[in-house]
Computed example of a mutant assay.
Amino acid sequence: MISQFSKPGAHGFNQDACGYLKQDDKIIMAVADGHGHYLHFRSDIGSQLAVESAIQVFMDCTSDPKDLKQREQRIQQVWIDSVLSYHKDHMVSSFEWAKTRKYAPLYIDEKIPIEIAYGTTLLACVYFILENKLFVFRIGDGELYKVSTFRMEELLQKNDYGSEYITESLCEVPLVLKDNLDCLSFEKGLTSKDVLILATDGLSKFKNKKEIMYKIRKDVAGMNQLLSSLDNIDDLTVIAYRI
């Protein structure tokens, strides 16, 4: 059972994106959080392209670590190619240029690479159903949890970047994958009825986050109704998958 949910925060404009692809042998899940700053004036598009790029890259992957490592090295370039293709077909409007403020002339003079405008984080997971293996790729502050009957485990460290105010991005060149994010594979401890929860950082804004996640575990199918009733300040995007 899998459910996905995304809605904008108080500002009314959703910079997040999510998506999944379920196949016979695996399921690919991804969430992305566009930066939203006026420097990244098309980050809502960038986040959607990031999700699509992750699914495309891992669509025909195997659980071989070498295969996975090669594919994770391709994600950024696939995303950049998608960004450039989208940008070519969708001219920037005068309204969008106005949103960039002082950065407009720098973009127009090509002093800033256009992919910066689409800046986003990305958290992607590939769960190999028959092998009971989970591969994780993360750039930025996406969150991943395993929720069991009596325990909630955060599978990724809360802050891998040295400062809570720094968010790594797919638009950074060169993209440096840190060792603790490189080919993560949780091959033990995944049991039937456990629920994997992928989320953007909007979920962490709730003081009762733990209670919310236990409710999701209890009723994955009803997750959308639960989350839509919440008064979220930041964009809120969650994928829940019951193993």
Rank of each mutant, 00 (worst) to 15 (best):
Y103S: 05
L84F: 09
K102D: 12
V83L: 01
S85V: 11
K99E: 07
V83S: 02
R101D: 10
T100D: 02
H87R: 00
Y107D: 06
K111V: 09
K111M: 15
K102P: 10
H90S: 00
D81G: 02
L84Q: 12
S94E: 14
T100M: 12
K102C: 08
V92G: 00
R101Y: 09
M91K: 10
S94M: 07
V92E: 01
P105H: 06
D81P: 02
T100W: 01
P105V: 09
S93H: 03
S93F: 04
M91H: 13
D109W: 13
P105M: 05
V92L: 04
A104H: 11
E96V: 08
K102M: 07
I108S: 11
A104N: 07
Y103N: 12
D81V: 02
S82N: 15
R101M: 06
Y103C: 03
A104P: 08
A98M: 09
A104D: 08
D81T: 04
V83W: 03
E96P: 04
K111N: 13
S82V: 03
Y103G: 04
E96H: 03
K88Q: 13
E96D: 12
D89C: 05
I108E: 09
H90A: 00
E110S: 09
D109N: 15
A98H: 12
Y107W: 07
S85H: 08
M91R: 14
S82M: 03
E110T: 06
L84V: 05
E96S: 04
H90P: 03
K102N: 08
K102A: 10
R101T: 12
Y103F: 12
E110I: 02
Y103M: 05
R101W: 07
D81Y: 02
I108K: 15
Y103W: 12
L84C: 08
I108M: 12
K88S: 13
E96N: 06
D89P: 00
S82Q: 11
L84K: 13
S94V: 08
K99T: 07
R101V: 06
I108F: 15
K99N: 08
E110C: 10
H87Y: 08
K88N: 08
D109E: 15
E110P: 05
I108D: 15
D89I: 00
Y86A: 01
H90D: 00
E110L: 13
L106V: 04
V83R: 01
A98E: 14
E96A: 06
R101E: 07
V92N: 00
A98Y: 13
E110D: 11
I108H: 14
S93P: 01
A104V: 08
L106G: 02
K99G: 01
A98D: 14
Y103I: 07
D81I: 03
T100S: 13
K111L: 14
H87I: 00
K102E: 09
M91F: 08
D89H: 11
T100N: 01
S94A: 11
V92H: 00
S82E: 07
A98L: 11
K88E: 15
S82H: 11
P105K: 08
A98C: 06
E110A: 12
L106R: 10
Y107T: 10
Y103E: 10
V83I: 09
F95H: 13
S85D: 14
L84I: 05
D109Y: 14
S85Y: 07
L84R: 14
I108W: 12
Y107M: 06
W97E: 06
Y86S: 00
A104R: 14
D89N: 05
L106D: 12
K88R: 11
A104E: 15
L106P: 04
V92W: 02
D89W: 00
